[in-house]
Each structure stands twice: as structure tokens, then as C-alpha cells.
């Protein structure tokens, strides 16, 4: 069944995976980066009482099923490369939501990863 070709269904699953992965990671960062959380067990209990960690987990549960469907339709070696676009999405989102700086080197990295995903998507 894996054909290696990107059908509309494969493309839709790919977009959903990027959206859920980025949303989940941003929620985890909001949970983990909270300076008021403290340390050790108290940190985990603090995070559990706030919505962010649960929002992240919910995104990941849905992404879990989407990702399996995606992998069923593509070769794993191709799918894992296409999934690298998540790096770009997360860095751009981290810049806008958490003020993480996009230095020249980071922009170069983002462009190279995007180029690589394009080569795999168009040529693969």
C-alpha cells in the first residue's frame, strides 16, 4: 500500500501533523517554561493543575493517530524527512509567541531544512 506518492489524503495528513505537533510543542513549552512551577514533584503537580500540559497531551493523542495513517501510506524514510518541516514551523512559532530570536544562522538552518523537505516532496 505505501506508494511513495503524495496524494491529497497524504498531503492533508501531513498538514494536520504539522499543526498538531507545533500546537502541542508550544503548549508543552508554556507548561515547562513557567518560572513559577518550582522543582521536582511540585513542578509536575503545578503543571498538572494548569491547562497547558493537557492541551499538549490532547494534541499529541490526535497527532499519534494521524501520524500512523500518514506512515501507512508512505515509506518511513520519506515520511520522516517530510516530517522535518515541523522544525521550521516550531522555530517560526517560537519566534512569534516566545520572542526567541531568529538569528542569521537560524534563518539559514530554517531555509536549508525547508529546501530539503521540498526536494523530498517534489522529487520523491
Amino acid at each position: 500500500m505505501p506508494t511513495g506518492s503524495i496524494t491529497p489524503l497524504v498531503a492533508l495528513l501531513w498538514v494536520l501533523n504539522v499543526v498538531l505537533d507545533t500546537g502541542g510543542q508550544l503548549a508543552f513549552k508554556a507548561a515547562a517554561g513557567d518560572p513559577a512551577a518550582g522543582d521536582g514533584l511540585a513542578r509536575w503537580l503545578y503543571m498538572a493543575r494548569r491547562p497547558w500540559i493537557w492541551l499538549g497531551i490532547a494534541s499529541y493523542v490526535i497527532e499519534f493517530l494521524i501520524w500512523i495513517a500518514f506512515l501507512s501510506l508512505l515509506h518511513l524514510s520519506e515520511a520522516i524527512l517530510l516530517g522535518s518541516i515541523n522544525i521550521v514551523a516550531i522555530m517560526v512559532a517560537g519566534h512569534f509567541l516566545f520572542g526567541e530570536k531568529l538569528t542569521r544562522m537560524r534563518v539559514a538552518g530554517i531555509l536549508l531544512v525547508t529546501l530539503g523537505v521540498l526536494i523530498v516532496g517534489v522529487g520523491g
Partner: peptide
């Protein structure tokens, strides 16, 4: 899984890893 290693995959992987290395240097 005996998956074929095609040229676009190799080139794409090189660009992606180069990008990841750039991000590490950054």
C-alpha cells in the same frame, strides 16, 4: 523495510541535516 534509497531522498536528507547543523551552531 527494504525501502529504496532514491536520490531526492539523499539530497533532501543532506539539506535537512545541514539545516539542523546550522541550527546547532546558531
Amino acid at each position: 523495510f527494504n525501502e529504496p534509497l532514491r536520490l531526492p531522498h539523499v539530497l533532501g536528507a543532506i539539506a535537512i541535516v545541514a539545516g539542523i547543523v546550522c541550527l546547532g551552531f546558531a
